[in-house]
Design a protein around this nucleic acid. Structure first.
Lengths: 280, 280
DNA sequence: GTCAATTATGTAATTAAATTAAATTCTATA
DNA sequence: TATAGAATTTAATTTAATTACATAATTGAC
Protein backbone atom coordinates (compact mmCIF):
# COMPACT_ATOMS: atom_id res chain seq x y z
CA UNK A 1 0.00 0.00 0.00
CA UNK A 2 1.45 3.32 -1.05
CA UNK A 3 1.95 5.93 1.63
CA UNK A 4 0.64 8.63 -0.63
CA UNK A 5 -2.71 7.01 -1.30
CA UNK A 6 -2.84 6.08 2.35
CA UNK A 7 -2.37 9.73 3.18
CA UNK A 8 -5.19 10.85 0.93
CA UNK A 9 -7.52 8.19 2.22
CA UNK A 10 -6.94 8.85 5.90
CA UNK A 11 -7.53 12.60 5.89
CA UNK A 12 -11.14 12.28 7.14
CA UNK A 13 -10.10 10.23 10.15
CA UNK A 14 -7.32 12.59 11.22
CA UNK A 15 -7.45 15.35 13.81
CA UNK A 16 -7.64 18.97 12.74
CA UNK A 17 -3.95 19.72 12.94
CA UNK A 18 -3.01 16.39 11.43
CA UNK A 19 -5.31 16.75 8.47
CA UNK A 20 -3.81 20.17 7.84
CA UNK A 21 -0.41 18.54 7.72
CA UNK A 22 -1.67 15.88 5.33
CA UNK A 23 -3.15 18.52 3.06
CA UNK A 24 0.03 20.58 3.15
CA UNK A 25 1.99 17.53 2.10
CA UNK A 26 -0.40 16.69 -0.71
CA UNK A 27 -0.04 20.16 -2.22
CA UNK A 28 3.51 19.25 -3.20
CA UNK A 29 4.68 15.84 -2.03
CA UNK A 30 7.85 16.10 -4.09
CA UNK A 31 8.91 19.17 -2.14
CA UNK A 32 8.01 17.63 1.19
CA UNK A 33 10.76 15.05 1.02
CA UNK A 34 13.30 17.87 1.22
CA UNK A 35 11.69 19.76 4.09
CA UNK A 36 12.56 19.85 7.78
CA UNK A 37 9.89 19.44 10.43
CA UNK A 38 9.87 23.19 11.04
CA UNK A 39 9.40 24.03 7.40
CA UNK A 40 6.51 21.65 6.99
CA UNK A 41 5.04 22.78 10.32
CA UNK A 42 5.09 26.41 9.21
CA UNK A 43 3.53 25.47 5.88
CA UNK A 44 0.75 23.52 7.55
CA UNK A 45 0.30 26.15 10.23
CA UNK A 46 0.98 23.80 13.15
CA UNK A 47 3.70 23.37 15.72
CA UNK A 48 6.84 21.33 15.12
CA UNK A 49 6.04 18.42 17.39
CA UNK A 50 2.78 17.83 15.55
CA UNK A 51 4.85 16.71 12.59
CA UNK A 52 6.54 14.02 14.63
CA UNK A 53 3.22 12.86 16.01
CA UNK A 54 1.67 12.90 12.57
CA UNK A 55 4.41 10.66 11.23
CA UNK A 56 3.71 8.13 13.93
CA UNK A 57 0.02 8.27 13.19
CA UNK A 58 1.00 7.37 9.64
CA UNK A 59 2.88 4.38 11.03
CA UNK A 60 6.37 5.69 10.50
CA UNK A 61 8.99 5.73 13.21
CA UNK A 62 10.18 9.29 12.63
CA UNK A 63 9.90 12.22 10.28
CA UNK A 64 13.03 11.20 8.34
CA UNK A 65 11.53 7.74 8.03
CA UNK A 66 8.30 9.28 6.79
CA UNK A 67 10.19 11.21 4.15
CA UNK A 68 11.89 8.06 2.96
CA UNK A 69 8.57 6.23 2.70
CA UNK A 70 7.00 9.18 0.94
CA UNK A 71 9.88 9.32 -1.52
CA UNK A 72 9.33 5.67 -2.30
CA UNK A 73 5.65 6.10 -2.96
CA UNK A 74 6.37 9.12 -5.15
CA UNK A 75 8.26 7.07 -7.67
CA UNK A 76 5.06 5.39 -8.73
CA UNK A 77 3.11 8.57 -8.09
CA UNK A 78 4.98 10.38 -10.79
CA UNK A 79 2.83 8.23 -12.98
CA UNK A 80 -0.14 8.33 -10.60
CA UNK A 81 -0.95 11.83 -11.68
CA UNK A 82 -0.39 10.75 -15.22
CA UNK A 83 -0.46 13.60 -17.61
CA UNK A 84 -2.91 13.62 -20.46
CA UNK A 85 -1.59 13.55 -23.98
CA UNK A 86 -1.91 16.91 -25.67
CA UNK A 87 -1.64 18.15 -29.23
CA UNK A 88 1.95 18.97 -30.04
CA UNK A 89 3.34 15.99 -28.14
CA UNK A 90 6.00 14.17 -30.08
CA UNK A 91 6.11 10.38 -30.20
CA UNK A 92 8.58 10.04 -27.33
CA UNK A 93 6.21 12.21 -25.26
CA UNK A 94 3.03 10.32 -25.83
CA UNK A 95 4.71 6.93 -25.54
CA UNK A 96 5.90 7.90 -22.06
CA UNK A 97 2.56 9.32 -21.11
CA UNK A 98 0.52 6.32 -22.20
CA UNK A 99 2.85 3.88 -20.47
CA UNK A 100 2.60 6.00 -17.34
CA UNK A 101 -1.17 6.08 -17.55
CA UNK A 102 -1.36 2.31 -17.87
CA UNK A 103 1.05 1.75 -15.01
CA UNK A 104 -0.98 4.15 -12.92
CA UNK A 105 -4.13 2.19 -13.74
CA UNK A 106 -2.49 -0.92 -12.34
CA UNK A 107 -1.35 1.02 -9.30
CA UNK A 108 -4.94 2.05 -8.82
CA UNK A 109 -6.42 -1.40 -8.68
CA UNK A 110 -3.68 -2.49 -6.33
CA UNK A 111 -5.56 -0.53 -3.69
CA UNK A 112 -9.07 -1.15 -5.01
CA UNK A 113 -9.03 -4.89 -5.46
CA UNK A 114 -10.33 -6.77 -2.44
CA UNK A 115 -8.58 -10.15 -2.00
CA UNK A 116 -11.71 -11.55 -0.34
CA UNK A 117 -13.81 -10.79 -3.41
CA UNK A 118 -11.21 -12.25 -5.73
CA UNK A 119 -11.21 -15.39 -3.61
CA UNK A 120 -14.99 -15.60 -3.73
CA UNK A 121 -14.92 -15.18 -7.48
CA UNK A 122 -12.25 -17.81 -7.96
CA UNK A 123 -14.23 -20.18 -5.76
CA UNK A 124 -17.41 -19.56 -7.75
CA UNK A 125 -15.66 -20.10 -11.07
CA UNK A 126 -13.94 -23.18 -9.78
CA UNK A 127 -17.25 -24.72 -8.64
CA UNK A 128 -19.06 -24.15 -11.91
CA UNK A 129 -19.53 -26.72 -14.64
CA UNK A 130 -19.82 -24.10 -17.34
CA UNK A 131 -18.69 -20.49 -17.70
CA UNK A 132 -20.46 -18.11 -20.09
CA UNK A 133 -18.85 -14.77 -20.79
CA UNK A 134 -20.69 -11.78 -22.22
CA UNK A 135 -19.37 -8.50 -23.51
CA UNK A 136 -20.38 -6.00 -26.17
CA UNK A 137 -18.61 -3.17 -27.93
CA UNK A 138 -15.22 -2.60 -26.40
CA UNK A 139 -15.87 -5.43 -23.98
CA UNK A 140 -16.37 -8.00 -26.73
CA UNK A 141 -12.62 -8.29 -27.18
CA UNK A 142 -12.18 -8.56 -23.44
CA UNK A 143 -14.76 -11.32 -23.22
CA UNK A 144 -12.98 -13.16 -25.99
CA UNK A 145 -9.68 -12.77 -24.21
CA UNK A 146 -11.15 -14.06 -20.96
CA UNK A 147 -12.54 -17.09 -22.73
CA UNK A 148 -9.16 -17.78 -24.24
CA UNK A 149 -7.58 -17.73 -20.82
CA UNK A 150 -10.24 -19.56 -18.84
CA UNK A 151 -11.10 -22.48 -21.12
CA UNK A 152 -7.59 -23.85 -20.60
CA UNK A 153 -8.37 -24.59 -17.00
CA UNK A 154 -10.68 -27.40 -17.86
CA UNK A 155 -14.08 -25.76 -17.48
CA UNK A 156 -16.15 -25.39 -20.66
CA UNK A 157 -16.10 -21.67 -21.36
CA UNK A 158 -17.68 -19.63 -24.11
CA UNK A 159 -17.71 -15.94 -24.95
CA UNK A 160 -20.65 -14.31 -26.72
CA UNK A 161 -20.89 -10.86 -28.22
CA UNK A 162 -24.10 -11.30 -30.16
CA UNK A 163 -26.97 -10.04 -28.06
CA UNK A 164 -29.45 -12.63 -29.26
CA UNK A 165 -27.03 -15.43 -28.53
CA UNK A 166 -26.41 -13.89 -25.13
CA UNK A 167 -30.14 -13.92 -24.34
CA UNK A 168 -30.50 -17.52 -25.38
CA UNK A 169 -27.43 -18.64 -23.48
CA UNK A 170 -28.44 -16.70 -20.37
CA UNK A 171 -31.93 -18.19 -20.49
CA UNK A 172 -30.68 -21.73 -20.78
CA UNK A 173 -28.16 -21.42 -17.95
CA UNK A 174 -28.66 -23.29 -14.68
CA UNK A 175 -27.28 -23.36 -11.14
CA UNK A 176 -24.05 -24.97 -12.30
CA UNK A 177 -23.31 -22.14 -14.70
CA UNK A 178 -21.37 -19.00 -13.88
CA UNK A 179 -22.08 -16.03 -16.07
CA UNK A 180 -19.37 -13.42 -16.35
CA UNK A 181 -20.42 -10.04 -17.71
CA UNK A 182 -17.91 -7.40 -18.73
CA UNK A 183 -19.13 -3.83 -19.05
CA UNK A 184 -17.19 -0.60 -18.54
CA UNK A 185 -20.12 1.42 -17.31
CA UNK A 186 -22.55 -1.24 -16.09
CA UNK A 187 -25.31 0.85 -17.67
CA UNK A 188 -25.83 -0.77 -21.03
CA UNK A 189 -29.53 -1.64 -21.25
CA UNK A 190 -28.89 -4.83 -23.19
CA UNK A 191 -26.42 -6.07 -20.61
CA UNK A 192 -28.73 -5.34 -17.71
CA UNK A 193 -31.45 -7.32 -19.45
CA UNK A 194 -29.09 -10.25 -19.87
CA UNK A 195 -28.24 -10.03 -16.19
CA UNK A 196 -31.93 -10.25 -15.29
CA UNK A 197 -32.44 -13.26 -17.51
CA UNK A 198 -29.36 -14.86 -16.01
CA UNK A 199 -30.62 -14.31 -12.48
CA UNK A 200 -33.97 -15.91 -13.32
CA UNK A 201 -32.26 -18.95 -14.72
CA UNK A 202 -30.50 -19.48 -11.40
CA UNK A 203 -26.97 -19.00 -12.69
CA UNK A 204 -24.28 -17.40 -10.57
CA UNK A 205 -23.75 -13.87 -11.86
CA UNK A 206 -20.39 -12.13 -11.70
CA UNK A 207 -19.94 -8.69 -13.23
CA UNK A 208 -16.82 -6.70 -13.91
CA UNK A 209 -18.16 -3.18 -14.24
CA UNK A 210 -18.49 0.18 -12.57
CA UNK A 211 -19.69 -0.19 -8.98
CA UNK A 212 -22.99 1.47 -8.07
CA UNK A 213 -24.34 0.71 -11.51
CA UNK A 214 -27.59 -1.15 -12.29
CA UNK A 215 -25.55 -4.11 -13.49
CA UNK A 216 -23.54 -4.24 -10.27
CA UNK A 217 -26.81 -4.23 -8.30
CA UNK A 218 -27.97 -7.43 -9.94
CA UNK A 219 -24.74 -9.35 -9.56
CA UNK A 220 -23.81 -11.90 -6.91
CA UNK A 221 -20.25 -10.61 -7.05
CA UNK A 222 -18.95 -7.39 -8.62
CA UNK A 223 -15.41 -6.36 -9.35
CA UNK A 224 -14.69 -2.80 -10.40
CA UNK A 225 -13.78 -2.14 -14.01
CA UNK A 226 -12.01 1.03 -13.00
CA UNK A 227 -14.55 2.99 -15.00
CA UNK A 228 -14.74 5.59 -12.26
CA UNK A 229 -11.08 6.29 -13.02
CA UNK A 230 -11.53 6.89 -16.72
CA UNK A 231 -10.41 10.22 -17.90
CA UNK A 232 -13.11 11.24 -20.32
CA UNK A 233 -10.88 13.09 -22.72
CA UNK A 234 -11.16 11.50 -26.10
CA UNK A 235 -7.58 10.34 -26.23
CA UNK A 236 -7.55 7.88 -23.36
CA UNK A 237 -10.38 5.36 -23.39
CA UNK A 238 -7.87 2.68 -22.57
CA UNK A 239 -6.90 2.38 -18.96
CA UNK A 240 -10.00 0.44 -17.93
CA UNK A 241 -9.14 -2.14 -20.51
CA UNK A 242 -5.77 -2.73 -18.91
CA UNK A 243 -7.47 -2.99 -15.54
CA UNK A 244 -10.03 -5.52 -16.69
CA UNK A 245 -7.40 -7.55 -18.45
CA UNK A 246 -5.33 -7.68 -15.32
CA UNK A 247 -8.35 -8.72 -13.31
CA UNK A 248 -8.90 -11.58 -15.75
CA UNK A 249 -5.24 -12.41 -15.37
CA UNK A 250 -5.55 -12.50 -11.60
CA UNK A 251 -8.68 -14.64 -11.68
CA UNK A 252 -7.06 -17.11 -14.03
CA UNK A 253 -3.99 -17.25 -11.84
CA UNK A 254 -6.12 -17.90 -8.78
CA UNK A 255 -8.02 -20.61 -10.58
CA UNK A 256 -4.85 -22.26 -11.81
CA UNK A 257 -3.41 -22.24 -8.30
CA UNK A 258 -6.56 -23.77 -6.92
CA UNK A 259 -6.52 -26.60 -9.41
CA UNK A 260 -2.97 -27.41 -8.41
CA UNK A 261 -0.71 -29.84 -10.21
CA UNK A 262 -3.32 -31.74 -12.14
CA UNK A 263 -3.81 -28.71 -14.37
CA UNK A 264 -0.23 -28.75 -15.59
CA UNK A 265 -0.75 -31.78 -17.81
CA UNK A 266 -3.83 -30.12 -19.26
CA UNK A 267 -1.93 -26.92 -20.03
CA UNK A 268 0.92 -28.83 -21.60
CA UNK A 269 -1.51 -30.72 -23.78
CA UNK A 270 -3.05 -27.49 -25.02
CA UNK A 271 0.34 -25.97 -25.65
CA UNK A 272 1.62 -28.94 -27.61
CA UNK A 273 -1.50 -29.00 -29.72
CA UNK A 274 -0.06 -25.91 -31.41
CA UNK A 275 3.38 -27.36 -32.05
CA UNK A 276 2.73 -28.37 -35.63
CA UNK A 277 1.47 -24.89 -36.51
CA UNK A 278 4.79 -23.25 -35.71
CA UNK A 279 7.89 -22.77 -37.79
CA UNK A 280 10.87 -23.84 -35.69
CA UNK B 1 19.96 7.34 -13.98
CA UNK B 2 19.28 5.62 -10.70
CA UNK B 3 21.39 6.53 -7.69
CA UNK B 4 21.96 2.89 -6.92
CA UNK B 5 23.53 2.03 -10.26
CA UNK B 6 25.40 5.32 -10.12
CA UNK B 7 26.82 4.23 -6.80
CA UNK B 8 28.03 0.92 -8.12
CA UNK B 9 29.54 2.50 -11.19
CA UNK B 10 31.47 5.21 -9.39
CA UNK B 11 33.25 3.04 -6.81
CA UNK B 12 36.51 2.88 -8.80
CA UNK B 13 36.75 6.65 -9.01
CA UNK B 14 36.14 7.22 -5.31
CA UNK B 15 38.70 7.76 -2.56
CA UNK B 16 39.52 4.94 -0.17
CA UNK B 17 37.16 6.00 2.60
CA UNK B 18 34.42 6.92 0.18
CA UNK B 19 34.53 3.62 -1.65
CA UNK B 20 34.27 1.86 1.70
CA UNK B 21 31.11 3.84 2.35
CA UNK B 22 29.72 2.93 -1.07
CA UNK B 23 30.44 -0.73 -0.48
CA UNK B 24 28.85 -0.63 2.95
CA UNK B 25 25.71 0.86 1.43
CA UNK B 26 25.57 -1.72 -1.33
CA UNK B 27 25.63 -4.57 1.14
CA UNK B 28 22.12 -3.60 2.22
CA UNK B 29 20.74 -0.49 0.55
CA UNK B 30 17.29 -1.09 2.03
CA UNK B 31 18.71 -0.84 5.53
CA UNK B 32 20.79 2.21 4.72
CA UNK B 33 17.77 4.43 4.24
CA UNK B 34 17.00 4.00 7.94
CA UNK B 35 20.50 4.66 9.25
CA UNK B 36 22.05 7.75 10.80
CA UNK B 37 25.40 9.10 9.69
CA UNK B 38 27.08 7.58 12.74
CA UNK B 39 25.62 4.16 12.14
CA UNK B 40 26.70 4.08 8.52
CA UNK B 41 30.09 5.55 9.44
CA UNK B 42 30.69 2.81 11.98
CA UNK B 43 29.60 0.16 9.47
CA UNK B 44 31.93 1.52 6.81
CA UNK B 45 34.73 2.07 9.32
CA UNK B 46 35.06 5.78 8.64
CA UNK B 47 34.41 8.98 10.58
CA UNK B 48 31.03 10.67 10.65
CA UNK B 49 31.89 13.69 8.52
CA UNK B 50 33.03 11.38 5.72
CA UNK B 51 29.41 10.42 5.26
CA UNK B 52 28.41 14.02 4.66
CA UNK B 53 31.27 14.48 2.27
CA UNK B 54 30.44 11.28 0.46
CA UNK B 55 26.85 12.41 -0.06
CA UNK B 56 28.02 15.58 -1.72
CA UNK B 57 30.38 13.63 -3.93
CA UNK B 58 27.28 11.71 -4.99
CA UNK B 59 25.64 15.01 -5.87
CA UNK B 60 23.22 15.13 -2.99
CA UNK B 61 22.86 18.15 -0.74
CA UNK B 62 22.89 16.23 2.53
CA UNK B 63 22.77 12.75 4.02
CA UNK B 64 19.00 12.90 4.51
CA UNK B 65 18.69 13.95 0.89
CA UNK B 66 20.89 11.04 -0.12
CA UNK B 67 18.66 8.65 1.78
CA UNK B 68 15.59 9.99 0.00
CA UNK B 69 17.23 9.57 -3.40
CA UNK B 70 18.39 6.10 -2.50
CA UNK B 71 14.90 5.14 -1.37
CA UNK B 72 13.52 6.30 -4.70
CA UNK B 73 16.00 4.28 -6.70
CA UNK B 74 15.18 1.20 -4.66
CA UNK B 75 11.54 1.18 -5.66
CA UNK B 76 12.03 0.28 -9.29
CA UNK B 77 14.56 -2.32 -8.41
CA UNK B 78 12.00 -4.10 -6.29
CA UNK B 79 9.19 -4.09 -8.82
CA UNK B 80 11.43 -4.94 -11.72
CA UNK B 81 12.37 -8.25 -10.24
CA UNK B 82 8.76 -9.37 -10.15
CA UNK B 83 8.34 -12.65 -8.41
CA UNK B 84 6.55 -15.57 -10.00
CA UNK B 85 3.37 -16.88 -8.47
CA UNK B 86 3.87 -20.13 -6.62
CA UNK B 87 1.57 -22.77 -5.14
CA UNK B 88 0.61 -21.81 -1.62
CA UNK B 89 0.25 -18.12 -2.43
CA UNK B 90 -2.88 -16.63 -0.96
CA UNK B 91 -5.04 -14.25 -2.94
CA UNK B 92 -3.39 -11.10 -1.59
CA UNK B 93 -0.04 -12.58 -2.65
CA UNK B 94 -0.88 -13.45 -6.19
CA UNK B 95 -2.82 -10.23 -6.77
CA UNK B 96 0.28 -8.24 -5.82
CA UNK B 97 2.54 -10.44 -7.89
CA UNK B 98 0.46 -10.28 -11.03
CA UNK B 99 0.07 -6.50 -10.80
CA UNK B 100 3.83 -6.21 -10.30
CA UNK B 101 4.51 -8.43 -13.29
CA UNK B 102 2.25 -6.37 -15.51
CA UNK B 103 3.77 -3.11 -14.33
CA UNK B 104 7.22 -4.53 -14.93
CA UNK B 105 6.14 -5.50 -18.45
CA UNK B 106 5.21 -1.88 -19.12
CA UNK B 107 8.49 -0.76 -17.62
CA UNK B 108 10.19 -3.10 -20.04
CA UNK B 109 8.70 -1.67 -23.20
CA UNK B 110 9.44 1.83 -21.97
CA UNK B 111 13.04 1.10 -22.86
CA UNK B 112 12.39 -1.17 -25.83
CA UNK B 113 9.96 0.92 -27.82
CA UNK B 114 11.65 3.07 -30.42
CA UNK B 115 9.83 6.39 -30.95
CA UNK B 116 11.05 6.51 -34.54
CA UNK B 117 9.39 3.19 -35.31
CA UNK B 118 6.17 4.24 -33.64
CA UNK B 119 6.22 7.40 -35.73
CA UNK B 120 6.76 5.41 -38.91
CA UNK B 121 3.91 3.10 -37.99
CA UNK B 122 1.56 5.95 -37.20
CA UNK B 123 2.47 7.61 -40.47
CA UNK B 124 1.83 4.39 -42.40
CA UNK B 125 -1.53 3.84 -40.72
CA UNK B 126 -2.49 7.43 -41.24
CA UNK B 127 -1.74 7.26 -44.97
CA UNK B 128 -3.72 4.11 -45.58
CA UNK B 129 -7.26 3.99 -46.94
CA UNK B 130 -8.00 0.67 -45.27
CA UNK B 131 -6.56 -1.23 -42.32
CA UNK B 132 -6.87 -4.99 -42.05
CA UNK B 133 -5.95 -6.63 -38.77
CA UNK B 134 -5.13 -10.30 -38.38
CA UNK B 135 -4.67 -12.38 -35.25
CA UNK B 136 -5.31 -15.99 -34.28
CA UNK B 137 -5.57 -17.79 -30.97
CA UNK B 138 -4.68 -15.48 -28.14
CA UNK B 139 -4.11 -12.70 -30.63
CA UNK B 140 -7.65 -12.86 -32.01
CA UNK B 141 -8.92 -10.90 -29.04
CA UNK B 142 -6.10 -8.42 -29.43
CA UNK B 143 -6.89 -7.95 -33.10
CA UNK B 144 -10.52 -7.36 -32.23
CA UNK B 145 -9.53 -4.82 -29.61
CA UNK B 146 -7.28 -3.01 -32.04
CA UNK B 147 -10.08 -2.83 -34.56
CA UNK B 148 -12.34 -1.39 -31.94
CA UNK B 149 -9.86 1.35 -31.19
CA UNK B 150 -8.70 2.15 -34.71
CA UNK B 151 -11.96 2.26 -36.63
CA UNK B 152 -12.98 5.32 -34.62
CA UNK B 153 -10.29 7.35 -36.26
CA UNK B 154 -12.06 7.41 -39.58
CA UNK B 155 -10.16 4.74 -41.49
CA UNK B 156 -12.14 1.64 -42.46
CA UNK B 157 -10.71 -1.08 -40.25
CA UNK B 158 -11.54 -4.76 -39.94
CA UNK B 159 -10.23 -7.58 -37.78
CA UNK B 160 -10.20 -11.19 -38.97
CA UNK B 161 -9.52 -14.33 -37.02
CA UNK B 162 -10.70 -16.85 -39.59
CA UNK B 163 -7.72 -18.03 -41.56
CA UNK B 164 -9.62 -18.40 -44.84
CA UNK B 165 -11.02 -14.90 -44.49
CA UNK B 166 -7.53 -13.68 -43.71
CA UNK B 167 -6.17 -15.23 -46.89
CA UNK B 168 -8.88 -13.71 -49.03
CA UNK B 169 -8.54 -10.29 -47.44
CA UNK B 170 -4.75 -10.36 -47.72
CA UNK B 171 -4.95 -11.37 -51.38
CA UNK B 172 -7.35 -8.60 -52.27
CA UNK B 173 -5.40 -5.88 -50.50
CA UNK B 174 -3.62 -3.15 -52.47
CA UNK B 175 -1.03 -0.41 -51.98
CA UNK B 176 -3.49 1.72 -50.04
CA UNK B 177 -4.08 -1.00 -47.49
CA UNK B 178 -2.10 -1.49 -44.30
CA UNK B 179 -2.12 -4.97 -42.86
CA UNK B 180 -1.48 -5.32 -39.18
CA UNK B 181 -0.54 -8.78 -37.93
CA UNK B 182 -0.47 -9.65 -34.25
CA UNK B 183 1.44 -12.76 -33.21
CA UNK B 184 3.21 -13.46 -29.93
CA UNK B 185 5.90 -15.65 -31.41
CA UNK B 186 5.93 -14.61 -35.07
CA UNK B 187 6.32 -18.30 -35.89
CA UNK B 188 2.80 -19.41 -36.66
CA UNK B 189 2.89 -20.95 -40.12
CA UNK B 190 -0.55 -19.66 -41.03
CA UNK B 191 0.41 -16.11 -40.16
CA UNK B 192 3.63 -16.23 -42.12
CA UNK B 193 1.67 -17.41 -45.15
CA UNK B 194 -0.71 -14.50 -44.75
CA UNK B 195 2.23 -12.15 -44.55
CA UNK B 196 3.58 -13.53 -47.83
CA UNK B 197 0.25 -13.12 -49.56
CA UNK B 198 -0.02 -9.60 -48.19
CA UNK B 199 3.43 -8.68 -49.49
CA UNK B 200 2.54 -9.96 -52.95
CA UNK B 201 -0.58 -7.88 -53.04
CA UNK B 202 1.48 -4.74 -52.42
CA UNK B 203 -0.02 -3.85 -49.05
CA UNK B 204 2.06 -2.24 -46.34
CA UNK B 205 2.81 -4.91 -43.74
CA UNK B 206 3.21 -4.13 -40.06
CA UNK B 207 3.74 -6.89 -37.54
CA UNK B 208 3.62 -6.85 -33.78
CA UNK B 209 5.52 -9.98 -32.85
CA UNK B 210 8.77 -11.37 -31.54
CA UNK B 211 11.75 -9.79 -33.33
CA UNK B 212 14.06 -12.15 -35.25
CA UNK B 213 11.10 -14.30 -36.21
CA UNK B 214 10.09 -15.30 -39.75
CA UNK B 215 7.12 -12.97 -39.52
CA UNK B 216 9.27 -10.02 -38.49
CA UNK B 217 11.54 -10.72 -41.48
CA UNK B 218 8.71 -10.22 -43.93
CA UNK B 219 7.33 -7.03 -42.41
CA UNK B 220 7.92 -3.46 -43.52
CA UNK B 221 7.80 -2.44 -39.88
CA UNK B 222 8.00 -4.64 -36.77
CA UNK B 223 7.24 -3.77 -33.18
CA UNK B 224 8.19 -6.21 -30.47
CA UNK B 225 5.41 -8.13 -28.75
CA UNK B 226 7.61 -8.61 -25.71
CA UNK B 227 7.52 -12.33 -26.38
CA UNK B 228 11.21 -12.59 -25.54
CA UNK B 229 10.26 -11.46 -22.04
CA UNK B 230 7.65 -14.12 -21.45
CA UNK B 231 8.23 -16.26 -18.47
CA UNK B 232 7.35 -19.70 -19.71
CA UNK B 233 5.90 -21.01 -16.47
CA UNK B 234 2.33 -22.03 -17.04
CA UNK B 235 0.93 -19.40 -14.73
CA UNK B 236 1.93 -16.25 -16.56
CA UNK B 237 1.13 -16.21 -20.26
CA UNK B 238 -0.16 -12.70 -19.84
CA UNK B 239 2.44 -9.98 -19.79
CA UNK B 240 2.85 -9.89 -23.57
CA UNK B 241 -0.85 -9.23 -23.88
CA UNK B 242 -0.52 -6.13 -21.71
CA UNK B 243 2.42 -5.02 -23.80
CA UNK B 244 0.64 -5.45 -27.11
CA UNK B 245 -2.44 -3.72 -25.81
CA UNK B 246 -0.36 -0.78 -24.71
CA UNK B 247 1.32 -0.65 -28.09
CA UNK B 248 -2.11 -0.50 -29.71
CA UNK B 249 -2.99 2.23 -27.26
CA UNK B 250 0.11 4.21 -28.19
CA UNK B 251 -0.48 3.81 -31.91
CA UNK B 252 -4.08 4.95 -31.57
CA UNK B 253 -2.98 7.92 -29.52
CA UNK B 254 -0.42 8.88 -32.11
CA UNK B 255 -2.96 8.56 -34.88
CA UNK B 256 -5.51 10.65 -33.00
CA UNK B 257 -2.93 13.35 -32.39
CA UNK B 258 -1.98 13.38 -36.05
CA UNK B 259 -5.57 13.81 -37.15
CA UNK B 260 -5.90 16.82 -34.90
CA UNK B 261 -9.14 18.58 -34.10
CA UNK B 262 -11.22 17.29 -36.94
CA UNK B 263 -11.29 13.89 -35.28
CA UNK B 264 -13.03 15.18 -32.18
CA UNK B 265 -16.36 15.59 -33.88
CA UNK B 266 -16.05 12.08 -35.26
CA UNK B 267 -15.32 10.65 -31.80
CA UNK B 268 -18.21 12.53 -30.26
CA UNK B 269 -20.54 11.22 -32.92
CA UNK B 270 -19.49 7.65 -32.20
CA UNK B 271 -19.85 8.16 -28.47
CA UNK B 272 -23.33 9.67 -28.75
CA UNK B 273 -24.48 6.86 -30.97
CA UNK B 274 -24.46 4.74 -27.83
CA UNK B 275 -26.46 7.17 -25.69
CA UNK B 276 -29.80 5.49 -26.19
CA UNK B 277 -28.41 2.10 -25.17
CA UNK B 278 -27.51 3.30 -21.67
CA UNK B 279 -29.56 3.51 -18.51
CA UNK B 280 -29.04 6.95 -17.01
C1' DG C 1 64.76 9.49 -0.74
C1' DT C 2 62.99 13.91 0.91
C1' DC C 3 60.53 17.94 0.95
C1' DA C 4 56.71 20.90 -0.29
C1' DA C 5 52.04 20.92 -1.99
C1' DT C 6 47.96 18.83 -2.30
C1' DT C 7 44.47 15.82 -1.10
C1' DA C 8 42.10 12.90 2.09
C1' DT C 9 40.54 11.85 6.59
C1' DG C 10 39.71 12.38 11.47
C1' DT C 11 38.62 15.12 15.96
C1' DA C 12 36.25 18.44 18.35
C1' DA C 13 32.96 22.05 18.22
C1' DT C 14 28.85 23.89 16.42
C1' DT C 15 24.67 24.16 14.37
C1' DA C 16 20.50 22.32 13.01
C1' DA C 17 16.79 19.04 13.42
C1' DA C 18 13.66 16.19 15.76
C1' DT C 19 11.56 14.58 19.76
C1' DT C 20 10.11 14.53 24.64
C1' DA C 21 7.94 16.43 28.58
C1' DA C 22 5.19 19.70 30.66
C1' DA C 23 1.77 23.22 30.13
C1' DT C 24 -2.11 25.03 27.86
C1' DT C 25 -6.02 25.26 25.10
C1' DC C 26 -9.70 23.39 23.04
C1' DT C 27 -14.05 20.10 22.81
C1' DA C 28 -17.60 17.38 24.13
C1' DT C 29 -20.58 15.82 27.61
C1' DA C 30 -22.96 15.46 32.01
C1' DT D 1 -21.15 25.59 33.06
C1' DA D 2 -17.96 22.58 35.14
C1' DT D 3 -14.88 19.03 33.97
C1' DA D 4 -12.69 14.99 31.88
C1' DG D 5 -10.35 14.01 27.99
C1' DA D 6 -8.21 14.87 23.83
C1' DA D 7 -5.54 17.84 21.00
C1' DT D 8 -2.13 21.08 20.57
C1' DT D 9 1.62 24.24 21.82
C1' DT D 10 5.73 26.04 24.18
C1' DA D 11 9.98 25.19 26.09
C1' DA D 12 13.61 21.95 27.04
C1' DT D 13 16.27 18.14 25.65
C1' DT D 14 18.21 14.88 22.90
C1' DT D 15 19.90 13.36 18.73
C1' DA D 16 21.75 14.00 14.16
C1' DA D 17 24.47 16.29 10.78
C1' DT D 18 27.74 19.50 9.41
C1' DT D 19 31.51 22.90 9.82
C1' DA D 20 36.01 24.26 11.05
C1' DC D 21 40.14 22.99 12.11
C1' DA D 22 43.96 19.65 12.78
C1' DT D 23 46.36 15.76 11.27
C1' DA D 24 47.68 12.22 8.25
C1' DA D 25 48.40 10.33 3.82
C1' DT D 26 49.69 10.81 -1.05
C1' DT D 27 51.83 12.77 -5.02
C1' DG D 28 55.27 14.79 -7.77
C1' DA D 29 59.50 17.66 -8.21
C1' DC D 30 64.08 17.85 -7.09
Amino acid sequence: MSLLSNLKRSIPSLSKAESRIAKAILIDPEATVNMTTSELARLAGVSDPMISRFCRTMECTSFPDFKVQLAKSLVNKVSFISEAVSPGDNSANYIEKRINANQAALEYIRTKLDPAIIEQTVAALSRSKKIEIFGMGGCAAIAKDAQHKLFRLGIPTMAHEDHLMQRMVAASADEDTTILIFSFTGRTQAMVEIAEIAKNSGAKLITICSPNSPLAELADITITSGDELEDTTIYVPMTTRIIILTITDILTTGLALEQGEEIEAQLKKIKHSLDSTKII
